[in-house]
Design a protein around this nucleic acid. Sequence first.
DNA 1: AGTATGTTTAATAGCTCTATTAATTTAATG
DNA 2: CATTAAATTAATAGAGCTATTAAACATACT
Lengths: 207, 207
Amino acid sequence: MEVKNNPTMEIVILETAERLFLEKGFSMTSTTEIAKEVGCNQALIHYYYRTKENLFNVIFETKFREFFRSIFELENVKGLNFTEKLTYIIGSHFDMVRKNPKIPILIFNEFTRNPDMVSSLKSKLAGVVSQITTTINTELQNEIKAGRIREISMTDLIFSVISSNISLFLILPVVSGILSLDEQQKEIFINHRRDENIRIILNGIKP
Amino acid sequence: MEVKNNPTMEIVILETAERLFLEKGFSMTSTTEIAKEVGCNQALIHYYYRTKENLFNVIFETKFREFFRSIFELENVKGLNFTEKLTYIIGSHFDMVRKNPKIPILIFNEFTRNPDMVSSLKSKLAGVVSQITTTINTELQNEIKAGRIREISMTDLIFSVISSNISLFLILPVVSGILSLDEQQKEIFINHRRDENIRIILNGIKP
DNA sequence: AGTATGTTTAATAGCTCTATTAATTTAATG
DNA sequence: CATTAAATTAATAGAGCTATTAAACATACT
C-alpha cells in the first residue's frame, strides 16, 4: 500500500498528450511522438493509460465538459439590465473560446471519427444546457413581451452566440494565413471581431 | 500515341477518394481503403496519382476553389434593392454550404495539417475576394450614407455571413447527435436556422 | 540487508500503411 | 495475327504505429 509520491510522469504525459492532440488531432498524434516529447519510453504511456484511445478519451471528456460548463459565465451579471447582461455574456463566452480556440475543432472531428461517443456525453450535457436556458429565458421572454426584443427562442439566441464566437477561431488560421497577418494584427482583428459579434447579435435581436 | 478510351477508373478513384476524404479526413483515409471501395488494386491509385498526398491535393484544390468561387452567387440579384439583395446572397450562400457541408472542416484541418499549403493558395484567392468586395461595396457605402445601415465594413459583413452559415453545419452533427434528431427534424432545424441567420444579419446591420 | 511494490525501459510481435517493381491482362493497331 | 502501349494486379520492401511482455531500476518497509 504505497502512497503515490511523485505522479509527475503520469501528469506530464497527460499534459503533453493534451497539447499534441489539440495541435494535431487524434490520428496525427502517435504515442511514440508523445513519448519523445515527454522524454520517456513509449511503453510508459501504455502503462499509465493502457491505450491511445483511452488516453484521448480522458483528455477529451475533461475538455468537453470544461468547454460546455463554461459556455456561459453567469456569475457577474446580477444587477445588470438585459442588454448589459447579454453584452457581458457574449463577451465572456468569446474570451473563453479565445482561451481554448482548438477545442471546437477537436470536438467536431471527434464526432465524425467516433459517432458512438455521442451517447456517453448526452447525459452529461442535459443539465448544463437546461441550466443556461432557464436562467435567462424568463428575462428574455419579458423583454419580448415588453417589445424591446423581437420574437426569438433562447435556443436560437444561444446558437447564434456560440456560432459567431467559435467560427472566428476556426476561420482565423485560414484568414491569417492568406493575409499573412502577424500576431499583433491578429490580436487587433480578434478584438475587433469581439465587438462586432456583440454588436451584430444585440442589434440582430431588436424588434 | 493512344487516346484515353475509358478514363473511368481514374475518375472513379477520384470520386471515391473525394467522398472518403470528405467523410473522414486525410489521415483517417488510407489508399488501401479507397481501393477496396473502388474495387480495384491498391497500386492502381498510385499508378494514376503517384502519392496519397498528391491525390488529396488534386481534390482539395478543386474543392477549395469551388467553395470560394461560389461563396456568393451574384447572378440573380440585379434589380433588387439592397436588403433584398443581401437576403438573396445570404440565402444562396447558405444553400451552397448546405450542399457541401463537409468542405469547411476539411479546409480547417488541412490548414493545421499542412500550413505550407497556404502560400500556394493565396494568389488563387486574391481575385475572388476583391471581386466580391467591390461588387456590392459601393452599394453598402450608399446605404450607410443614407442612414439605412449602420457603419460596418464589407469585410465584417461577409465575415459574419460566412461564419453563421458554415458554423451551423459544423455544429449540426454535435447537436443532432446529442438531441438524437432524425433526418426530418434536422431538415426543419436547418431551414429554421437559414431564416434565423438571414434575420439576425439583416437586423444586425441596421442603424 | 532483503523483500516487496511501483516505475521505467528494452525488445519485439503483429498490424497497417505507402510506395515501388515486375509481371500479367487488356485493348488498339498495322 | 503479331506487336505495342496502356491498364491492372501480385508481391513485397520498408517504415511507423500500437500494444504487450519481461527484465531492470528505484524506493519504501521490516
